[in-house]
C-alpha cells in the first residue's frame, strides 16, 4: 500500500514536471513530436532509476559514514555525468538498436534537472533503497505521462492558427499551464 501511495503521489499529485518544475527543458525541447517524446521518456526512465540506485548507495555507504554530506551536490552530479557516459558506451556495444532509439537523448540527460532532483529528493525524504527506486520509477513515469500528453497536444497546435506573437514557446507554455491546472484536480487524492 505504501508503494502504491508513493506511485500515485509522484505520477499524478506531485507530477515532477507540472507541479515541481523539474525537467522543463526537455519538456519544452523535445515535445514537438510524439515519437521523440517517447524516446526521451524511455531514456529518462532508464537513467533516473540507475542514478537513484547509485547515488543512494554512495550517500548511505560513503558520504554519511564519513560525514561528507556537504559534498553531496558535487558527488551526485559527477556520478550522473559518469553514468550517462557509461550507459551510452555500453548501449552502443550491447544493443545498437536501443542505442539508435535513445542515443541522441542521452547526452541531454546529464543536464536534465529531474535526474539530480530525484536523487536529492530520495535522500531528503529518508527513503530506503526499495522506496527510493519506486519513487524514481514513478517520477520517471510521471515525466513520461506529462511529456506524452503535451507532445500530443503540440502536434495539434502545429495546425492551429495561433497569433504571431504567441507562436512557439509562449503558446506551449500556456498549454502547459492549462495541463498543470488539469493535474491540480488530482490534489487531495493521496
Amino acid at each position: 500500500m505504501e508503494y502504491v501511495i508513493i506511485i500515485i503521489a509522484a505520477v499524478f499529485v506531485n507530477n515532477i514536471v507540472l507541479a515541481q518544475f523539474l525537467g522543463i527543458c526537455p519538456f519544452l525541447g523535445v515535445s514537438t513530436k510524439v515519437g521523440t517524446a517517447t524516446g526521451m521518456s524511455m531514456a529518462v526512465l532508464f537513467v533516473i532509476t540507475l542514478a537513484t540506485i547509485v547515488t543512494w548507495l554512495v550517500q548511505t555507504l560513503v558520504l554519511d559514514p564519513l560525514g561528507l554530506g556537504f559534498l553531496q551536490t558535487i558527488t551526485f552530479i559527477l556520478i550522473i555525468a559518469a553514468l550517462v557516459q557509461m550507459v551510452e558506451i555500453i548501449l552502443k556495444k550491447v544493443s545498437p538498436s536501443l542505442y539508435q532509439a535513445l542515443g541522441i537523448f542521452l547526452p541531454l540527460i546529464t543536464t536534465n534537472c529531474a535526474v539530480l532532483g530525484v536523487a536529492i529528493l530520495v535522500v531528503q525524504k529518508d527513503y530506503n533503497l526499495l522506496q527510493g527506486v519506486v519513487f524514481a520509477v514513478a517520477n520517471a513515469l510521471g515525466f513520461g505521462l506529462a511529456l506524452l500528453i503535451f507532445s500530443g497536444i503540440r502536434e495539434h497546435l502545429e495546425l492551429m492558427d495561433v497569433p504571431r506573437r504567441m507562436r512557439g514557446v509562449p503558446i506551449a507554455l500556456l498549454t502547459a499551464g492549462i495541463l498543470a491546472l488539469a493535474f491540480m484536480g488530482f490534489a487531495g487524492l493521496v
Partner: peptide, 18 residues
C-alpha cells in the same frame, strides 16, 4: 504551478520581437 507557466508564456509573448 499553472500560474507560473501562464504568466511566463504571456511575458515572453510581450517581450519577444514578433
Amino acid at each position: 504551478a499553472p500560474g507560473a507557466f501562464i504568466a511566463l508564456g504571456y511575458l515572453i509573448a510581450l517581450i519577444r520581437k514578433a
